[in-house]
Computed example of a mutant assay.
Amino acid sequence: MDATNHNSKPPSSVPRDRSSEARTVTVDGVRQVYRVAGQGPVCLVHPGGPGVHPDYLRLPSLEKYLTMVYLHPVGSGDSGLLSDGDYSMSRYGRFAEAVLDDVGATTAYFLGHSHGGFVALQFGMNRPERLDGVILYDTAPLNGGELRETATKEMAAFVERWPNRPEAAEAGRVWDAVNVSQTFKVADNESYQRYMNAILPAYFADYRKTTQQVGQVGLRVTLDPNRLPVRWDARDRLGTINVPALVIVGTYDFICPPRFAYEMHAEMPNARLCELRESGHFGHLEESEQFTAAVVEFVHTVEKDGRA
């Protein structure tokens, strides 16, 4: 790994007013950008996607307790693209570890949301000695056709739950056009953005309620045309992840539904589960107090008891 350190100051000494500054570490000639905010134990934060920018996953309520290291995963945000298109979970993990080295932390918590949770699980298998714990937030232990088929059924249930909402019908129509009939192709940044905007209401237990409370929710995206398909399944290796784990899932999460959270909780030897009963895929917005409390309690328990 070719890693160039641009700032090796320990994270505990990073003042809050510098949280808007981007930091960069170069890995194999590729730019990896991240931002730091907060105080306390270090926590890597890997957003979902792939290709979704990290803006939506800012967690100021946790910055009171943790030094949050917000990753811009390669292929998204301000980070570079991978010329070979190899966006495997292990490859993402290499970049995350380079950031961990760059902030000067030996170990950290790893909060992975959705696709970021895939990376967190893989990191837990590859580099458990670098982890204090993993926070698997609205994610699943697999990626590929089976997950997409499950999400298609959950999308249909979402549309049925809101029969009088045009945005629900539109979300279902666009999902099917891309993932079932394949009559609409996501081929560039513009079409990817249109697709995500159309299906976004399905990511919430009650989209209208959430937007009334927190304002309009949006996602920015990047589509790398060189990105190779990734089929990934860690279900037969969950039992090898022995670091403390917190599994968080929203009852109405359509893209990574609760059954996968319960499967991870059952198979991982040192895991606890938190189900957010009034959330979909974005519990940090839908039930922010409960989400924060679950993470803080988990971290406090691990810090008190020491690493298992």
Rank of each mutant, 00 (worst) to 15 (best):
M1E: 14
P10S: 10
S12T: 04
S20N: 14
S20H: 15
R23K: 13
T24N: 13
T26C: 10
V27M: 07
G29Y: 09
Q32S: 15
Y34S: 11
G40D: 05
G40M: 02
H46V: 14
G48N: 11
G51L: 10
L59M: 06
P60V: 09
P60G: 09
S61F: 13
E63G: 07
E63I: 00
K64M: 01
L66N: 08
L66T: 03
T67L: 04
M68S: 08
M68N: 12
V74R: 09
V74M: 07
V74L: 13
S76V: 00
G77P: 11
G77W: 05
D78H: 10
G80R: 09
L81Y: 14
L82M: 12
S83K: 15
G85D: 11
D86M: 13
S90H: 12
S90F: 02
R91N: 11
V99Q: 03
T107Y: 12
T107D: 13
A108P: 15
F110C: 08
G112N: 06
G112H: 08
H113V: 08
H113R: 06
H115K: 14
G117L: 07
A120L: 09
F123C: 13
F123R: 10
N126T: 14
D132A: 13
D132T: 14
G133D: 10
V134H: 13
L136C: 12
L136H: 10
Y137I: 01
Y137W: 10
T139P: 15
P141A: 08
L142N: 10
G144E: 01
R148Y: 11
R148C: 09
A151E: 09
T152E: 06
T152I: 01
V159K: 06
E160G: 05
R165I: 11
A168K: 01
G172N: 02
G172T: 01
W175T: 03
D176I: 00
V178W: 00
V180D: 03
T183L: 05
V186E: 01
V186W: 01
E190I: 04
Q193C: 01
M196R: 05
N197M: 00
Y203M: 14
F204Y: 06
D206N: 04
R208G: 15
K209V: 09
Q216F: 08
R220K: 06
R220A: 06
T222W: 05
D224F: 05
D224C: 03
L228G: 01
P229Y: 00
P229D: 04
D236K: 05
T240A: 11
I241F: 02
L246D: 06
V247I: 03
I248G: 09
T251D: 10
T251V: 06
Y252I: 00
D253T: 01
A261P: 08
M268C: 08
M268L: 04
M268Q: 03
R272N: 10
F282S: 07
G283W: 03
H284K: 02
H284A: 04
A294W: 01
V296W: 00
V302A: 06
E303A: 08
D305K: 10
R307C: 00
A308S: 15
